[in-house]
Structure formats: structure tokens, C-alpha cells
Computed example of a mutant assay.
Amino acid sequence: MDARSLSIDGLPVPFDDGQTIMDASLAAGIFIPHLCHHPQFTPQGSCKLCTVRANGRYVSACTMPASEGMEVESNTPELNDKRRTMLQMLFVEGNHFCPSCEKSGDCLLQALAYELEMLGPHFPQFYPDRPVDASHPDVLLDFNRCILCELCVRASRDVDGKSVFALSGRGIGKHLIVNAESGRLADTDFSLADKAAHVCPVGVIIAKRRGFAVPIGQRRFDGEAISRRVDWLARRRADDEEEQ
């Protein structure tokens, strides 16, 4: 039986039954911008950065099943402009000050901003008043950087079986919380060995006493653009801590 295929930006891409557009693209080494997708979790299409045009219709690449003969447009000026706007909104909605962040150089949000040539925030800063939780002996939580991707929520619930994290509120008031009566991470059974400790694409969940173990300039996206790290994005090692 001949392999089934779709096209992404005019390139033929094979796919297997059950794969999404994102699955097929990553397997083929084709980069589609995304933040909330992780190959180990069921996709849910939270961030919308992976929006593409499939047969003329806007869909999320991470949730849309691939189909024979499907024509997908991704790397177009129109779509990249929309993605850039979404990134600008994410940057002003939280406190993302890259020079002072331990995640700089290893942050998907920052790497995508470089990739999509985001030169400025464009919108007024929100400066939300969110807490920093340093109660846990091994982990610091900086809620100011949360982009509501829910990767830590899904990892803690589906992999660790603990449900340490959740999202609360609606609309502009939606925010990440810790599932403890006190709201403090120290009052949960969270561990640095948990999957949820290593999936945050930004700088919310930070291991203590490891700051700048990898110097700035030598981190994952310092030397190579995110679009050239499709191999890592496709496999995302179990601990999400691949040596650079």
C-alpha cells in the first residue's frame, strides 16, 4: 500500500494513521511554531500559535488529523504576522523580562519571538501582580511568567498522577494555581523528579541551586534558531533536559 501524504507549504509530507498535521510536520523536520504542544501529551490546542490553513480553512496543526491530499499552508506572511501578534500579547500579559530570567536561551516563548522577528511588545504592558512561591525546598514558582499552556497541569495529572497544578478563573483573570489549601507548593507532594517539573516552556518552574549551570550563550536556542531544533521538539526526552 502506498504511503499516504499531505503537503505543507508545497512539500510532500508522509503521515501515518492517527497522526495530526503537527505530528507529520515534526516527523518530516518541518517547523510549525507552537508553545502548548508536547509529543508525550494529548494535544488540546491552547496557544493557537500552530494555526495553519488546511484546504483553505484555519485549524490548529496540533489537533487537526492529517488526511490524504490535504494542502497545508504554514510559513506565510499572513500566518506569521498573526503569530507575531499573539506572541506580543503573551509578552505584555505577563512579566517576561528575558535578561533577568534563568530560562533565557532555553525558553520557547523567547525563541519563537526571535524566530518570528518580534521587534517589540507593541501593546501596553499589563504588569500583573502575581505571587512568587519559594516555599518548596527544591523549586521556585514564578507565576508572573505563566502563559497558560497547561503543560504542567497535564504532566502532573496524566504522568505524575498528582494533579499539583490547575488553572483557575476565566478570561483575563485566568491564572495558574497550586492545588493545596494554602496555595503553597511546599504543602504538596511535588518533587523535582516529577515530569511536571521539567515541561514548562517558559520560566515558571525553576529548580533551586542550579542557576546558570549552563552559561548564557551556550543554551539550547542561543546558538541555533528554534526552527533548526525540530529534532528536539519532535522527541522531547523524558526529562526534557537534553544536554546542548
Rank of each mutant, 00 (worst) to 15 (best):
G173V: 00
A213Q: 13
Q218A: 11
E73R: 08
A186S: 14
R228S: 14
D240T: 04
V52D: 09
T42H: 11
K82M: 13
G29H: 09
G169W: 06
Q110M: 01
G169M: 07
Q40N: 10
C152Y: 03
G56W: 06
S104L: 02
M1H: 12
H136M: 01
G173H: 13
Y127T: 07
V202M: 00
D9N: 13
D142Q: 05
I177L: 01
S191I: 03
Y127W: 09
A234S: 14
M118S: 01
K82W: 14
E68A: 11
D138Q: 15
V132I: 15
A225F: 06
V178W: 06
I30W: 09
P215R: 12
E241F: 05
R84I: 03
G161F: 09
H136L: 05
M89H: 08
R229Y: 05
R83M: 12
A28N: 06
T20Y: 09
R57T: 13
C146Y: 11
V59Y: 06
T76V: 11
A155G: 12
T20S: 15
F143Q: 13
K103A: 08
S104P: 00
S135L: 05
A134F: 08
D106S: 10
M22L: 15
S5K: 14
S135K: 06
V59Q: 07
R84K: 15
C200P: 10
L151I: 11
G45R: 10
S104N: 08
V230T: 15
F190D: 04
R237E: 15
M64R: 09
D129M: 03
R229E: 13
M118V: 15
V230H: 08
M22S: 06
H96V: 02
D160I: 04
G211E: 12
C146I: 06
D239T: 13
H198L: 00
G173E: 07
V159G: 04
